[in-house]
Design a protein around this nucleic acid. Structure first.
Length: 275
DNA sequence: TTTCATGTTCAGCA
DNA sequence: GTGCTGAACATGAA
């Protein structure tokens, strides 16, 4: 479930632990996480080069090498990076390890949905993946324009990586909770599958005040989550992240948290707070 | 033993 | 083209 805040923490971790050291070894023990490159070629391309800079777009992390290429990492649902001394044992489920002189950087992924590739140009890769602007680079007017151009529900739009990059299930729920907006806003009428084209309903139906609120909370939630190192137990008590369960008491003390299901995804929200 | 969770991609449908 | 739905992917926890 790494979303923007988690990946930003990973980015800082790599930046602080692993740059400007020669890569002396590569252990690509699980080819499944390699994206479009063999273990052999990845090793050849990396040995002797140094990691030079980090770049994040949404949930995607790039680590530029001084050779010009860049590692492209996606963390799927359970992946993370683990830096350490060379001698430190590597965590269980380590899929790839870079040895950097006296240190090592492990890519660990229990469920193996994560991917590591090597790309020539991060900007081009971002384009190929169809990623929209990073959620933290969005201005209020940018968000307004995205909402205006979208016909889907608010949750769907927030989580659409081609519209806004970086927001997933957890943080879309939190942002909408903090902004006190109904995640279903703009959704088609669920009680009548035929009454689909209601021009009053789409996400563009937000007032200026509501979309301003959404923009402010989007930034605030993501920034505070990063400050909390993306660890829920360090996030404010009043956040929905602590109450993601159907029937849980609303963290604001109002009503009861409910679950809204759409296309196999579950959103949690408080009908009393969010409208 | 079965179900669930989670991000992405993809096929199928309205 | 747009948006929704469900399946697939991998794996461990409930």
């Amino acid at each position: 479930m790494p979303e923007l805040p988690d990946v930003e923490v990973f980015r800082r971790t790599v930046a602080h632990s692993s740059l400007h050291r020669p890569i002396t070894g590569v252990d690509a023990r699980d080819p499944q996480v390699l994206d479009g490159i063999s273990a052999r070629r990845l090793t050849e391309e990396l040995i002797g080069v140094e990691l030079a800079a980090t770049l994040r777009r949404g949930k995607q992390l790039y680590v530029r090498c001084d050779s010009g290429a860049a590692l492209a990492m996606h963390f799927g649902m359970t992946a993370y990076v683990d830096p350490g001394a060379t001698a430190d044992p590597t965590p269980e489920h380590t899929r790839l390890t870079l040895f950097l002189d006296d240190r090592r950087l492990a890519f660990v992924d229990q469920r193996r949905f994560g991917r590591v590739g090597l790309v020539d140009d991060p900007d081009r890769n971002i384009e190929e993946r169809g990623l929209g602007p990073d959620a933290l680079d969005l201005g209020a007017t940018d968000l307004q324009a995205i909402l205006d151009g979208s016909r889907g529900s608010l949750v769907a739009t927030l989580m659409d990586q081609s519209s806004i990059a970086g927001i997933g299930n957890i943080y879309s729920d939190e942002i909408l909770f903090q902004a006190r907006l109904d995640p279903r806003a703009g959704a088609r009428d669920l009680t009548d599958a035929h009454a689909r084209l209601d021009p009053q309903a789409p996400a563009r139906g937000l007032t200026d005040a509501e979309s301003g609120r959404l923009h402010r909370q989007l930034r605030r939630v993501l920034e505070r989550a990063i400050e909390a190192h993306a660890q829920p137990d360090r996030m404010p008590r009043g956040w929905l992240i602590h109450a993601r369960e159907d029937g849980a008491p609303c963290p604001r003390g109002n009503g009861t948290v409910r679950r809204y299901s759409a296309s196999g995804r579950h959103a949690y929200w408080c009908p009393d707070c969010q409208r």
